[in-house]
Design a protein around this nucleic acid. Sequence first.
RNA 1: GCCGGAGUGGCGGAAUUGGCAGACGCGCCGGACUUAAAAUCCGGUGGGGGAAACCUCGUACCGGUUCGAGCCCGGUCUUCGGCACCA
Length: 831
Amino acid sequence: MKERYEFKEIEQRWQKEWKDAKAFKVTEDPNKKKYYVLEMFPYPSGKLHMGHVRNYSIGDVVARFKKMQGFNVLHPMGYDAFGLPAENAAIKNGVEPAKWTYENMAEMTAQLQQMGLSYDWDRELATCTPEYYKWMQWIFIQFYKKGLAYKKDNPVNWCPSCQTVLANEQVVDGCCERCKTPVTKKELSQWYFKITDYAERLLDNLDKLPGWPDKVKIMQRNWIGKSHGANVDFQIDGTDKVMTVYTTRCDTLFGCTYMVMAPEHPYVKELVAGTEYEAPVLAYIERCQHMNEIERTATTNEKTGEFIGRYAINPVNGKKVPIYISDYVLMGYGTGAIMAVPAHDQRDFDFAKKFGLDIIPVVDPGDPSIDLYNLTEAFEAEGTMINSEQFNGMNNYESIPKMIEWLGERNLAEATINYKLRDWLISRQRYWGTPIPMIYCEDCGWQPEKEENLPVMLPTDVEFTGKGESPITTSKTFVNTVCPCCGKPAKREVDTMDTFLDSSWYFLRYCDAHNDKEAFAKDKVDYWMNVDQYIGGVEHAILHLMYARFFNMALYDLGLVDTEEPFQNLLTQGMVTKGYTDDKGEYKVAKMSKSLGNVVSPHEIIDKYGADTARMFILFAAPPERELEWSDAGVEGSYRFLGRVYRMVYNFVEEFGNGELATTGSSKADEELLFTLHTTIKRVTDDIDKRFNFNTAISAIMELVNAMYKYKDGEVNAPLFRYALKMLITLLAPFVPHICSEMWEHMGFEGSVHDEAWPAYDESAMQRSTVEIVVQINGKVKARMDVDPEMDRDALGEFAMADEQIKALLEGKNVMKVIAVPGKLVNIVAK
RNA sequence: GCCGGAGUGGCGGAAUUGGCAGACGCGCCGGACUUAAAAUCCGGUGGGGGAAACCUCGUACCGGUUCGAGCCCGGUCUUCGGCACCA
């Protein structure tokens, strides 16, 4: 160890040592308690950004800490390597997607290794390798056989720029999640996963995940969107057709004054055929199809629609009400048709006002300021039933089950549950993804490829035009094959899988990353799963985290895994932001991004200060869930702190050399040092283990360092101070592993600090003979005194009252009450 | 519109169960070392008043509960995030 803190030399040396020794390689060990810590694997864009650094720094502290606590820690890393950017690079620069991806992965691996992360690199995986996607295809086939995968013609979300379909989850604000182009609808035959079969379990199990942030659970609950209601049948007048509507508000049935069908509703064309309404209705439908998602769903839009010339009969009172079509009714939810109650639903109210339809109130709010027969807006809350015959006078909410019962007895309705969650559209018209292992035969229909023929390899003889169909269509070798069923010529599916499938089970593959006989050995997965701590950005709260839960549940049902839920505890880290000046010269803070020019690259920080400093700063600047504002001055501070620790070790060894340790002391200063040391151990342990508050753990260590500097000014008990240094290095090791290895070695300690047991704190060293309490008068601090920590309530009160200073302050006042809290304070209430 | 966070010094943030508000770090001020600077070490640092002991105000705003509120309750404002015509 040199006099100066040469971080580059130190970091390179220890990184090489860890790599060569495979220091973090693990195998299943039934005698040891396992701990699986996982950070969301990156897309190999080529460069690490600060969000990655934050994510992996957090994970690395947890992994190293748990290892020191004696757990058998699985901490793997890999790449979510399929995806659009590789393909775009091919279109733009003519680089092969595979080449582009593998080069990026190599670059990122080098950058990850510069951070000193404790990964078991032997388990590294990339989803774009045939070794991985073979098993992806195998899982697809298992799902297919179980009836969880099906092909269907449907209007789908289409991104005109990416030239591919998107899952509902990938449409954000009506635009493509990736390129922000407004999404349009297109009728296509596509593969789906039946995630809706799991809606109820995905919802229920959220209650069994106390280690997940409420925010994420709420977002998933909203996304699943369970609602209780009823399907109610309305006879269409003059036909044998029944129009079934879904409603959560059966209480308002008597207020129904018209009906609305979605423009895509299959009855519509039939009902208008040959009538005077046909032309305008078809024109309206046409217009809707050409609208993109934004135009269609904009709430500010005025309501539009067309009367279809038909009437439905309200089952509760036999009244005839007109049927309209309007785009505010969605085909994909409920039955694609609604009963409209303008008095008690704002959307219906707006529509009724525009089209001059009746508004009949059936729920009385009991508020004289509301003129029921001249409503200015819909009344949607609780009230008393009116205009509803035998239900009049009831509370409207209480009448709902009664109404459903009444209708049920007459076979007109049944209680129904609906979910907003839709089936997962997984086909993509792209090249760089896992080929869907399905074959179409004229005679046998869709058949899965034989398992022994997997993987269905991605062809390399393709052209990248960036237009229309999957580029795989251009392959001369891929499409034509034989039917696995009858052996006749057949054609392969040319679409690939959504890359979210790849990332829905990678955590299982890590348990047995190079198995070429099966996706993963069950005993290995049973040993490691589930993930004890998962860490990643909150942007995956719905997409990835719900898909992965669905996959794990389906695999559980297939008997392939033993746990239903894949992630026991989840930590969603906040964004890394930085200040910048916008066009108008205003100072703002936002997520680091190239377009705003507020990016700091990890590489430049590691180059200037080292990985330990980068890790320390990023963990110290904010608690992990919160947004972290980058500060160059703050980095400087972390660097200074490490220098301070380094010098303390270096100077101590210069002066006292290496030698024996003492865990007890004799002087008052010794005791004080031991007190600080042990309270620090406790604070740091709790902060990492129970709270994930690395920022306060680090500040506690900083306080210890300050206390040690103070101690060094007096008489130094060298064996005791040496012990304190040993503990200090141990506490710091999960945060800043390189410098700690270096200091550990310099002090002549055995082995590696990273194999040390995490220190235990000694309660007795944390006991003090006296404790300072404060004495308040009327809640204001007036005095401090040292007392025996054991002193009870009454004695404490008397002791405080006996104090001369307090007596003087109470002169001429009436003591009303004395509240004493042992070990903390006394509050005297006086007038 | 609905759902969920957050609001504390000049700044990032502490305060773990209702009990000393501002830990720790940054910045700033002063001192030591130095020919000088950097680096380092030591001290100070919420506002107002005071020579000082000390007094007083202070956790977005208004009100409440309590001996005691940054923390609990009611209301308001600001701000960030998610969802959004889901019947």
